Amino acid sequence: MAESSPNARRTQLIVGLVVGAIVGVGVSLWTGFWLWLAAGLVVGLATGALMKPPPTS
């Protein structure tokens, strides 16, 4: 099984944080409760950390 590069892992974490921030801001604006931003960031970070990037050949 091929391993993914450290750069791919870092990129995946950053993408997870950005998506989490966007979702968190959206839900915060929709509900009027600002702590959804923090929840979005945590979920984005966890998703980016748990998912495996595609292997590089």
Rank of each mutant, 00 (worst) to 15 (best):
M1R: 15
E3M: 13
E3N: 12
S4N: 05
S4K: 00
S4Q: 04
S5M: 11
P6V: 03
N7E: 15
N7M: 09
N7P: 00
N7Y: 09
N7V: 10
A8S: 14
A8M: 06
R9D: 05
R10I: 06
R10M: 11
R10K: 08
R10F: 07
R10N: 06
R10E: 05
T11Y: 08
T11W: 13
T11K: 13
Q12A: 05
Q12N: 14
L13F: 04
L13N: 05
L13P: 00
V15M: 04
G16A: 08
L17R: 03
V19A: 11
V19L: 10
V19Q: 00
V19T: 12
G20A: 03
G20V: 06
A21D: 04
A21V: 11
A21I: 03
I22P: 01
I22G: 08
V23C: 05
V23Y: 02
V23L: 13
V23A: 14
G24T: 04
G24C: 03
G26C: 08
V27Q: 02
L29K: 07
L29M: 15
L29E: 13
L29T: 03
T31V: 06
T31R: 07
T31S: 05
G32S: 07
G32L: 06
G32E: 12
F33Y: 14
W34E: 02
W36M: 08
W36N: 10
W36G: 02
W36H: 09
L37Y: 01
L37T: 00
A38D: 08
A38M: 12
A39K: 05
G40T: 08
L41Q: 07
V42N: 10
V42S: 10
V42C: 13
V43Q: 01
V43C: 07
V43R: 01
G44F: 06
G44W: 01
G44C: 03
L45F: 15
L45S: 10
A46H: 01
A46S: 03
G48S: 06
G48T: 12
A49L: 11
A49N: 01
L50Y: 11
M51W: 11
M51T: 13
K52E: 14
K52D: 13
K52H: 10
P53Q: 12
P54A: 13
P54H: 13
T56E: 14
T56F: 11
T56V: 10
T56I: 04
S57E: 15
